[in-house]
Design a protein around this nucleic acid. Structure first.
Lengths: 149, 149
DNA sequence: CCGCATCCCTATAGATACTG
DNA sequence: CAGTATCTATAGGGATGCGG
């Protein structure tokens, strides 16, 4: 039997942070969520194109994990049958507050981060505006692609 | 030579989220920071006692990483020469906004999270109060243990 | 005791090649 | 194009060692 195996933190702790790390406690999941929230991406190949260079197996694995965790869902592409369209659930969209907090923190504290000034300015002076814009864009996408029953 | 090796995201991307994941894109780092910010922990053995069960090599490794990333520093324990006291730098303390955002998100969206009602109430209605309390506690600790020059 | 460092060993992460 | 298969390097649990 497995002598060494990591048990999910949610089995050992009641802390919400510990529970959250089971889902978003790795770089790739965070980057996929960023792609969807901030960059408005919806397709496998769009995720592949991000500069961080996720590999195919990792991407497939994380998409599955995020679906299981109910942060994202997918539908078939209405036009190209071989594609899927991924989109954020309410829980996934709500994660924007964490992403913006993280980006703001990095902007404030990491010397290696240097954003285009107009982006930095937004992040510092009007993060709420970023959140609202992102959520509006997602809503527009949903109205276009998701037929509500 | 290593055929497969992960390059830090900061080398490939300018995104602040990508840069942040190089430091806090793993569960254990986040849990250590939570311990320091929310639970007021300062010692190796206190981190060891957290219910998630970090192991000694991982703890030592992460403490080093966090020192290198300038999120934490340490001094010798003034009383017990064999101990160290870890404490958060300004960048580390500023991370409280991310931790609280993450905890709030988990509280709102993860069914498996059920906080004591009085804690949940604070998180929902007065997260700013949590932040202020945490920062005040850290300042008090600093006044006690850090002689300012 | 305390804070690690090291070793051993397995499970997982992730790069690359490949497939339906 | 969207994944799976394969394969290697790393992560990290557990035990132990060791200097202070």
């Amino acid at each position: 039997m497995s002598k060494t195996q990591r048990m999910p933190h949610c089995d050992k702790s009641d802390c919400p942070v510990a529970h959250a790390t089971d889902i978003v406690g790795d770089p790739w999941s965070l980057l996929i969520i960023r792609d969807m929230l901030i960059l408005g991406k919806h397709e496998y190949k769009e995720f592949m194109q991000s500069p961080e260079g996720i590999s195919t197996n990792v991407l497939a694995n994380r998409l599955k994990k995020l679906v299981c965790a109910d942060l994202i869902e997918w539908i078939n592409h209405p036009e190209y049958k071989t594609r899927k369209l991924y989109y954020l659930t309410p829980a996934g969209k709500d994660f924007i507050h964490v992403i913006v907090a993280l980006a703001s923190w990095a902007d404030r504290n990491m010397d290696s981060v240097s954003l285009p000034p107009e982006m930095a300015e937004k992040l510092r002076n009007n993060p709420q505006g970023i959140i609202e814009n992102a959520l509006r864009a997602l809503t527009e996408w949903e109205e276009k692609y998701l037929q509500q029953s």
